[in-house]
Structure formats: C-alpha cells, structure tokens
C-alpha cells in the first residue's frame, strides 16, 4: 500500500509545484524552473520508490532489527 500512496503524493506535489510555477513565476525563468521541477520529480520517483518498497516488504514480514531500521532510514536503497 505504501508504494501507490507514495506515487500519488509525489505526483500531487509535482502538480502543486507546476501550478505554483505557472501562477507565480515570471515567464523568463519559468521554463528553467519547470525543468528543475521535472528533474526532481522523476529522479525522486526512481530514487525513493525502491527505498519505500524495501521498507514496506520488511514491515510485512518480521519486525526489522535496530540496525536494519537505521540503515533503511539513513541509507535508502538505490539501484537494482
């Protein structure tokens, strides 16, 4: 359940950012800000998704040890 929730919230945040940039920012820099927002959005999906997935899979099984909890919180998994 965590993964769809994350994707929904993250996409919601992205659209809120889009709306703000479109409304509040002058057109000269708007496009560059949109590019930055896009980059953060997509990189964020691919960075946080596996970390959340790993976190969720551990929660479904046995409780993680203190060491695992620290490693999940401080060093989210990236990569395949």
């Amino acid at each position: 359940m965590m993964e769809p929730l994350f994707l929904l919230c993250w996409t919601g945040l992205f659209f809120a950012g889009l709306f703000l940039i479109r409304r509040k920012i002058a057109s000269g820099v708007r496009l560059y800000l949109l590019l930055m927002l896009n980059l953060i959005f997509l990189a964020g999906v691919f960075y946080f998704y596996p970390a959340i997935k790993r976190d969720a899979s551990i929660k479904r099984g046995s409780l993680p040890s203190a060491r695992e909890t620290i490693s999940i919180c401080c060093f989210p998994a990236v990569g395949d």
Binding site: A43, F46, Y47, P50, K53, V78, D80
Partner: peptide, 13 residues
C-alpha cells in the same frame, strides 16, 4: 521485476 532504478536516475539527469 523492477526496472534498473540506478540507471534510470542517471538517464533522468
């Protein structure tokens, strides 16, 4: 399976 996330982040940049 999951896509290669690390490569996808690089590709995004």
């Amino acid at each position: 399976d999951y896509p290669p996330f690390h490569a996808l982040i690089q590709l995004t940049v």
